[in-house]
Amino acid sequence: MEHILRPIYQERASQANTLGVLLIEKKDKASPVTDTFDAVLLIITKESEQPLYVKHYSYEDKKASMNIVSEEQLKDWLLMGTNRKVLEWILNGKVLFDRNDYIHNLKQELREFPFYGRKIKMGIEFSKLIRRYLDGKAFFENNQYMDAYNHIVHSLHHLARLSVIENGFHPEVTVWTQVKQIEPEIYKLYKELISSEETIEKRLELLFLASEFLIHSRSEMGSTHLIDVLQEKDIWSFDEMLNHPDLSLYSVDLSVLLEYLIDKNYITVIKKETKGQDIFHRYYSV
């Protein structure tokens, strides 16, 4: 399909703002990687008025998708893990245009997966894991088993992704295939949750018991990035954390992660008097 799409991507490649162009073609009929399209064009630009621009094309009985993404949006996806397909697009896509080896260097960086990048991704994944796990536990204790099940399935996904990152790999679309090889214990937990013949209440009860240790054992690694940032100074207000460029990545999960780490004695609460009687400002320290 490359020759059909050539006029489309050549026009973009000629623009000084374009950093690289990749072609991803569907290999398997049921493959989720190309979002049902026969081909995907990924065009990375230095800057753009909108972070993502998508256009669809048809040719005979086939369809293609052109995705023009800014470098900033791409880096955000790769860091936050919010678009897992794009990782596979970059690593496995055919390079059609590469300005100053931008794509080549990006592929190399993704394969090497430097520890600093891993540390941030582990922190974000761990915060999502804690949010889902605690919410699931609360639903379970209130006998809301279907809602508890939904949250726990998500928490196991985050645990699986955390395990993959911890081992130096990027979580792929087929993350459970990776986890089966890397950490079969987590894979077994997930399989038991979704396929056991026990009642949903019993399945959840057993899972909470088993996963407590797996989560606790990752607390130090999962909180490394947050702790490192907080060690930059002695005392923090929560607002200062929210507005720190690195910690803002945690978004709505930051408060839940913070309370979890207080409970596990990684972080201390410091109270300071206000003008109101028996009301204190709450500050935090490692």
Rank of each mutant, 00 (worst) to 15 (best):
E2H: 11
H3G: 01
I8G: 05
I8Q: 04
Y9N: 13
V33T: 09
V40P: 04
L42P: 00
I44F: 07
T45Q: 09
E47P: 13
Q50F: 15
P51R: 00
Y53W: 12
K55V: 14
Y59C: 07
K62H: 02
M66G: 05
S70D: 05
K75R: 03
K75F: 12
K75P: 14
L78K: 04
L79W: 10
I90D: 02
K94H: 04
K94M: 08
F97P: 12
I103Y: 00
P114C: 04
R118F: 02
I124V: 05
F126T: 07
S127M: 06
K137F: 10
N142M: 10
N143L: 14
Q144R: 11
D147I: 13
S155G: 05
S155F: 02
H157L: 11
L162I: 08
L162A: 03
V175E: 01
Q178F: 01
I186V: 06
Y187Q: 01
S195K: 09
E198Q: 15
E201Y: 14
K202A: 15
F208L: 10
L209I: 08
S211P: 01
S211R: 07
E212D: 04
I215W: 11
S217E: 15
S219H: 12
M221N: 12
M221E: 05
G222C: 02
T224M: 13
K233A: 03
K233D: 09
F238T: 09
H244N: 09
L254A: 05
L257G: 07
K264N: 08
K264P: 00
T268N: 07
I270S: 09
E273A: 05
G276N: 14
H281W: 15
R282S: 12
R282F: 13
R282D: 09
Y283A: 00
Y284G: 07
